[in-house]
């Protein structure tokens, strides 16, 4: 089928098998190697992407389900020059060890902060509860998301002061 959707801000058009898994399409056709496949059964969260702003599992989506959607992967959250607060906080707070869960974690965290900019620690724990990490023990990850929320609040304060 002819498929068209927005990936990390750019419109992509390609021919795809409609039943191709979204994770395979993103990685193998579109080079989005930041999208990781862990379990392939929806239990680890490593393949998480934001679809229209909502965290979804690309291992349990088919290519046809991306048609007309806006997809953001971890790499689309920010750039090395202008990182998303979540990306900066993960680096600064030691929230990354082997790194395999990190893109999915960052996507889950960014999805949470878009919906709830001032989450309690328990909200953060719940928000990343679909993402497995076998290295960090989660504490540093939750610290990082808290720090990212603080940075977002500070930025928002500055924008409002400037007005």
């Amino acid at each position: 089928m002819k498929l068209s959707f927005i990936l990390n801000g750019a419109t992509v058009r390609l021919d795809a098998e409609p039943d191709r898994r979204a994770v395979d399409l993103l990685r193998e056709e579109l080079g989005a190697l930041d999208v990781k496949e862990g379990c392939g059964t929806g239990e680890c969260g490593a393949c998480s992407v934001l679809v229209d702003g909502v965290q979804k599992l690309s291992c349990l989506m088919l290519a046809a389900q991306l048609e007309g959607r806006t997809v953001v992967t971890a790499a689309g959250l920010g750039t090395a020059e202008k990182p998303h607060p979540v990306q900066r906080a993960f680096a600064e707070h030691g929230a990354v060890q082997c790194g395999f869960c990190t893109p999915g974690m960052a996507v889950a965290a960014a999805g949470l902060l878009a919906e709830n900019p001032a989450p309690a620690r328990e909200d953060i724990r719940r928000a990343v509860s679909g993402n497995l990490c076998r290295c960090t023990g989660y504490v540093k990850i939750i610290d990082a998301v808290e720090a990212a929320a603080r940075e977002l609040a500070a930025r928002k304060g500055k924008t409002e002061d400037a007005r």
């Binding site: 929806g42 965290q55 979804k56 993402n131």
Partner: peptide
Amino acid sequence: LGSPPIRNM
């Protein structure tokens, strides 16, 4: 039920 992304899908 499930996890946040499972509940989203």
